[in-house]
């Protein structure tokens, strides 16, 4: 297979903070690669380097066969980018936006217009076609944003947290659109904080933390890596988690997760031992927590994340190097 995206030893520092610290990454042509990491892990900086917006301090990267530093124009001609914030002109209609971006991708006037109609149809946007995009709902704008990034079919599409802030329905609709794009042969690099999103979409997953890759593989590989099952204790009050983790400590590495405590399990005996340990702790007056549920389950990517990085996926770390765009207070003129 050939690599559509290949990065080696990328380093990028902002002041004395290393956003990227020797990051390497590879995406085979025609696949979806999920780039996962907590806030501040370096996801957006990685995207910015690969899309030629930010120059790396060290390391090299090629996208669609072109070097991002030496041949930025060729890279830009071959990519599409959809960021966290819909990057559209709020003063133009949906259709006008698509025509504008098509023209900037060097489609002729007629071709840009044809392509706009085709994309409006394909993404279910015909009703929104003549509305100014500032008036559209969040989900519709994201779909339009995705359409705008493929006015000229790209070889590689970058999706930077494409469903952040979307309601579940719009998220599923966007997932379908992304799967369709892969089916048409586009390589997709997807960053997300939602592990279920990576699980649902990505062929391979790269987990990064503090600017480095901490694990790489399919979702199944990664789950297998931390063992067969976990014993999970769900608590009514997550503040009780440390006390529960202490009670379970003799049985293994019990970690605090957002809704309770999780413990690698060797089998059903771990569950029995855990129940007993919690009972003993309660009898000894060391535990007062209300346990909502306790049971064995297959590990989720959350567990993988926790095991590999030592903190849950959604935890707030350093501020992520934000993309250039931020939500606008106003819209175009």
């Amino acid at each position: 297979m050939t690599a559509a995206v290949e990065a080696e030893g990328l380093v990028k520092a902002f002041g004395d903070r290393r956003a990227l610290d020797g990051l390497s990454l590879r995406a085979e042509a025609g696949t979806i690669v999920g780039l996962l990491g907590p806030n501040g892990a370096g996801k957006t900086t990685t995207i910015n380097v690969l899309t030629t917006v930010t120059r790396p301090d060290a390391g090299r990267a090629t996208v669609a066969g072109h070097d991002v530093v030496r041949e930025p124009a060729l890279v830009r001609a071959a990519i599409g980018v959809t960021g966290q914030f819909a990057a559209l002109d709020g003063g133009l209609t949906a259709r006008e936006n698509l025509v504008l971006f098509g023209r900037l991708m060097k489609l002729g006037r007629a071709a840009a217009s044809r392509r706009a109609d085709e994309l409006l149809e394909r993404f279910g946007l015909t009703e929104a076609a003549d509305q100014r995009t500032a008036m559209l709902s969040g989900g519709t704008r994201r779909r339009l944003d995705l359409a705008a990034s493929i006015t000229r079919e790209p070889a590689v599409l970058f999706l930077d947290e494409p469903t952040t802030g979307l309601d579940p329905r719009s998220r599923l609709a966007l997932w379908d659109a992304v799967r369709e794009l892969r089916a048409s042969g586009i390589t997709i690099l997807l960053t997300t904080q939602y592990l279920e999103e990576a699980d649902a979409l990505a062929d391979r997953i790269t987990i990064i933390d503090r600017g480095r890759v901490v694990a790489e593989g399919t979702a199944e590989d990664l789950k297998r890596r931390i063992g067969g099952t976990v014993c999970h204790v769900r608590l009514a009050d997550p503040a009780e988690a440390p006390a529960v983790a202490r009670a379970l400590a003799p049985l293994g590495v019990a970690s605090v997760v957002p809704d309770g405590v999780s413990l690698p399990a060797a089998g059903p005996q771990t569950l029995v031992a855990a129940v007993r340990a919690l009972d003993d702790a309660r009898a000894a007056g060391r535990l007062a927590a209300t346990i909502e549920d306790i049971g064995l389950r297959r590990p989720t990517l959350d567990d993988v994340f926790l095991a590999l990085t030592g903190h849950p996926a959604a935890a707030d770390g350093d501020d992520e190097a934000a993309p250039l765009g931020r939500p606008a207070a106003g819209v175009g003129a």
């Binding site: 980018v81 990057a87 971006f101 250039l324 606008a328």
Partner: peptide, 14 residues
């Protein structure tokens, strides 16, 4: 607004 609203961020990748 272009510069901060994402429009410019897209143009820079084109």
């Amino acid at each position: 607004s272009d510069l901060r609203g994402g429009f410019d961020a897209r143009i820079r990748t084109m």
